[in-house]
Design a protein around this nucleic acid. Structure first.
Lengths: 196, 196
DNA sequence: TTTTTTGGCTAACACGTGTTAGCAGTATAT
DNA sequence: ATATACTGCTAACACGTGTTAGCCAAAAAA
């Protein structure tokens, strides 16, 4: 009988959620089956249900744990007393690092949230919309202070967030530049595109 | 008996492919069923098979028709005798307009190609890789000519392509700026991020 | 050691999937 | 008008899905 291996402080459920993130990223939520997941965990499909309620629960957990981290960060950044352009750069760097170091989760949250079921779906979409508005507001205040070009703020947000999701390609590429280089290049281009 | 309606020069297959694009975009390839598609077309599921070979054939057609348009465009742009930065801007504007006016197809090609089956899958990935290399080469020549900042070209490509796929959010948003404004804003930020 | 809880297993379910076979109207060409 | 090619239908298939029930061994608690 093959038990799920756990270290201290990592529940078996956490192991499942982590493997699920990896699988959902690779195949997509719908295409990844519970039998696939079971195999990845080293157990029979039915056994998973000793630890989780449903397949969608896995998606909830992934999506909201990511969303919460971003909301917490924007709370923190908004409260700081620094120029808007620095706030933007801070958020940007946070996004980049999340995408680099929590790749699978962030990617899944970004691409697979469509498959959430209500009420989680509406909830998630709301949080997302609000987050983007708050980000846009920072940019607009940067425009008012002449720190940022006169551009459409929602469009700028859209560009930045999606550009960062391109780190997916970096992860998959064989000849990677270092994470630090990647971060600097992205900041150079994106902040450079806003300022002056 | 409810026939599929067609105008002149539009085959019933084209009608199906178009509806498929819309459905795959909305639900994702795996989650969109042939019965969904049939309903959208106004027919029973089995009837679709008088016009198409399989569900994946629909995905092939969508992915490769988009890919071919982009390859054709980069052929054209590479051949022009203009500064690299202008080539970049031309490609950028082409991408933006494709995403604006052939939204569903381009989106599906971008997000759902994972579900292609070999040999189409390898083929598509190859074309994609080659396209990005050619794009990166243009940027690199721009760097050599001091038209473009010293940045990592593959990273710049990744940013630009993914930023453009963010037009998805524009399509879904209720308060849209005009397509022309969107284009100018994107070019301003992205080209601005590369130059100087 | 004994008892209880935890976590695995097999078997099975109800259902949704893509697809095929065979048939019958309908449009098109002769 | 007759023949032929289209294009729709119903019925059915084989299979993969998420999930539950019921059972038993192993770990944890007593």
């Amino acid at each position: 009988m093959a038990r799920i291996k756990t270290d201290k402080n990592i529940s078996r459920k956490d192991v499942i959620v982590t493997k699920a993130a990896s699988l959902f990223r690779e195949k997509g939520f719908k295409a990844a089956s519970m039998r696939d997941l079971a195999e990845a965990v080293g157990v029979e499909a039915a056994s998973l249900y000793n630890h989780i309620k449903s397949k969608t629960e896995l998606l909830h957990e992934l999506c909201f744990s990511v969303a919460n981290r971003f909301l917490q960060k924007i709370d923190e950044v908004e409260a700081e007393k620094i120029p808007s352009i620095e706030k933007i750069e801070k958020l940007l760097r946070f996004h980049i690092n999340e995408m680099i170091h929590h790749y699978e989760e962030v990617y899944v949250s970004d691409r697979e949230w469509k498959h959430l079921a209500d009420p989680y779906l509406s909830n998630f979409q709301n949080q997302r919309r609000i987050y983007r508005k708050r980000f846009a507001a920072i940019i607009e205040s940067g425009i008012r202070n002449n720190e940022v070009k006169k551009i459409d703020a929602p469009t700028a947000v859209l560009i930045m967030l999606h550009a960062i999701s391109g780190i997916e390609s970096w992860h998959r590429s064989t000849q990677k530049i270092s994470a630090a280089e990647l971060e600097e290049n992205m900041v150079t281009i994106l902040v450079g595109g806003l300022t002056q």
